[in-house]
Amino acid sequence: MSDNKEILISVRDVSKSYPKDRGAVQVLRKCTFDVMKNEFLVIVGPTGCGKSTLLKLIAGLEFPTSGTILLEGEPVKGPGADRGMIFQEYALLPWRTVLKNVELGFEFQGQDMDERRRQAEAMRYLEMVGLGYAANKHPVELSGGMKRRASLAMILAVRPKILLMDGAFNALDSKTKMTMHQEITNIWEVEKNTVVFVTSDLDEAVKLADRIIVLGRNGEIDAVLRNELPRPRLGSSARDIDFHHRFVAFREMVMNVIKKDAGMRTCPVA
């Protein structure tokens, strides 16, 4: 998928620290990497290593202490509709129905659409995440998985070039998680957008990623690993025994980088 070598986001020597009591807490240290156009990039690492911060910097919601982030060659100056972010917590507006939440993006952008077209368009994205049947429910009536889907539809409707997903499928039950993996993969393949996905679930990372960036405890990049596993990686192909071996081997490789960072004994790669 990422044979395309066009650089979309360029992260250069980015460090970020937050002031705290006396001194500062360093969360990112001299991070440098590129995100290619139409790439599915996954960032893994221990909690508190600055994964979420990295996404917020790309989104333009926060700014690096030092270093630069370029989007198509231009420094990121603030948030924009070209970078849709899906947050770890649900961000649905509780007073709007699911459909109305999805319409929000059209309203923000002042798109010249009549009510019916807006609804139809929003409905299309709800169907895409398999939530068409819940269009008229309020967020309070949704389960965790449904809220995730609704947030996804909400951001997708804005048609961002880049999807920034922060632990988007954490705390979902495994079946829902699997469905969401299938859906996000499909959407990514159809919409041809670029995804930067943060997670601490290695299985998830290996299933989704073109490349995996491992962030270390101290907020530095430990490794950038290319995921050579063929797609599709979900459903029937995942039951192939050879595929399974390669899947596990790659996951162990990622695991070893993380363990080494944590100062643990590493096991040999299968």
Binding site: A59, L61, G78, P79, G80, A81, R83, G84, M85, F87, A91, L104, G105, F108, Q109, M154, I155, V158, P160, L164
Partner: peptide, 8 residues
């Protein structure tokens, strides 16, 4: 934040 990333 979400609204801002949606172009608000």
């Amino acid at each position: 934040n979400m609204s801002r990333t949606m172009g608000a």
